[in-house]
Amino acid sequence: MALAATGYFRRLTRRLTEDLDQLDAEAMVESSQASGAQRACDCSRGEEVTMLGRLRSVETCAKASTANMEAEFFDGTEAVTLVWIGRRRIAGIEPGKTLLVRGRVGERNGQKVIYNPYYELRGDS
């Protein structure tokens, strides 16, 4: 019984003193692994992937002829840019939403990117 209480207090102290972003990232990694999704840090260019994570930011990048919608997707290990070509807005795609995304990983300016990903909104946002 004393060991269980010690473990409880250790976890409680950790949650009170650790960085909230770090705790959130760890929770995302755990739920991603439980769903069977791949980790962004393990994915490489040209690979077809399925990942579970949360959108950190969403913006529209208007150029002369088209507008593209871009979102920063984070799964707890690494950020990936999602780009929807020719879209200004997509219902439900907003910061803080949890998504399951599928697509082929590319590279742009040294960063991982997925163009026109298939996505599913998850209710645990």
Rank of each mutant, 00 (worst) to 15 (best):
E72K: 14
L82I: 03
L55R: 01
K63Q: 13
Y118V: 11
E94M: 07
L55T: 04
A64W: 11
I93H: 03
L121E: 07
L82N: 02
A67N: 10
K63Y: 09
K63F: 10
T50A: 11
G106P: 00
P117D: 04
R102D: 08
P95C: 11
G92Y: 03
E107N: 05
G103Q: 03
E120L: 11
T98P: 00
E72L: 15
Y118I: 12
N116M: 10
V49K: 01
Y118Q: 13
G123R: 12
I90K: 02
P117C: 04
M69T: 08
N109G: 13
P95T: 09
G92M: 03
R104L: 09
I114C: 07
R108T: 13
R102E: 15
L99K: 01
G123H: 09
A62V: 11
R122G: 02
G110R: 13
N68F: 10
N116E: 11
G46D: 09
I85A: 14
S65G: 06
V80Y: 08
R56I: 09
D124L: 13
L55K: 00
W84V: 06
D75A: 05
L100P: 01
G53H: 02
E70L: 15
M69A: 05
G123E: 15
R89H: 12
S125C: 07
A91H: 13
Y118E: 15
G76K: 05
F74N: 13
G92E: 06
P95F: 08
Y118H: 14
F74P: 00
L55C: 02
R122W: 07
I93R: 02
Y115C: 06
T77H: 00
A64P: 06
L82M: 02
G96N: 00
R56W: 10
G76V: 05
I93L: 14
E59A: 15
R102Y: 08
S125M: 03
R87L: 09
K112R: 15
Q111V: 08
W84I: 10
Q111P: 00
P117M: 09
P117T: 09
Q111L: 14
D124Y: 07
R122F: 01
T81N: 04
V80S: 04
T66L: 08
R87H: 15
G53R: 04
V113P: 00
